[in-house]
């Protein structure tokens, strides 16, 4: 119980602040409550299938398979797979982090993890279709054409900036989760 309380401490603090704010400014309070309910609904809708797929991936797909397709030496195939899986995703970016952790556990190369994160954040296919319809094809297509090389550049730049030691520490952490 104490452990639980400690883990949810930040959330409790934020909740208390928001409740006080709501008492002070009722209109704002109601708006925050509405938005929170909406976001929670989105989370509840999108998260169960993602985590179920994660659990299944963890249990069924052997490490060798993932290493072969997306690990060291997977080359262009690994890069394309990372782009594809990230683009096929649904849900906000924070949903990508647990997936990345399982990928790390399964021996996926670090640059491919970063490419996957980049794709999840910017080239999600359902979102692109939505973007086309609201902002127009030229806008969406231009963004996409700039973003795809951007994802790759940022991934390799990050890998170089962070250094081997830090990357090892990140993998170590993922293996324990």
């Amino acid at each position: 119980m104490k452990q639980v309380l400690k883990r949810y401490r930040s959330f409790l603090v934020v909740s208390v602040v928001l409740i006080l704010l709501g008492l002070f400014n009722q209109e704002l309070g109601r708006q925050v409550l509405d938005t929170t309910a909406y976001q929670l609904k989105e989370m509840v809708l999108i998260i169960p299938p993602i985590f179920v797929l994660l659990g299944l991936l963890d249990v069924w797909v052997p490490k060798q398979t993932m290493v072969k397709y997306m690990g060291e030496g997977s080359g262009l195939k690994g890069i394309l797979l990372a782009l594809l899986i990230g683009s096929a995703a649904a849900g906000p970016l924070y949903g990508a982090f647990p997936v990345a952790a399982v990928f790390m556990k399964k021996g996926v190369k670090f640059s491919n993890i970063l490419i996957f994160i980049g794709a999840w954040s910017t080239t999600k296919i359902p979102m692109i279709l939505f973007e086309f319809s609201s902002l127009g094809v030229p806008f969406g297509l231009t963004r996409l054409l700039v973003d795809i090389p951007g994802i790759l550049i940022i991934a390799y730049l990050l890998q170089a900036l962070v250094g081997r030691q830090e990357i090892e520490a990140i993998y170590e952490k993922a293996s324990k989760a």
Binding site: R7, Y8, S10, F11, V14, S15, L18, L21, V32, L33, T35, T36, Y38, Q39, L40, M43, I47, F51, V52, L54, G55, L56, D58, V59, Y94, F97, P98, A101, V102, A177
Partner: peptide
């Protein structure tokens, strides 16, 4: 495993959602 991975990150999720709503 799915549940564990989810519960692991739930506290942060909740904070994020509350702040975003604000």
């Amino acid at each position: 495993k799915a549940w564990k991975a989810f519960e692991n990150i739930l506290p942060q999720f909740l904070v994020v959602i509350a702040l975003v709503s604000l």
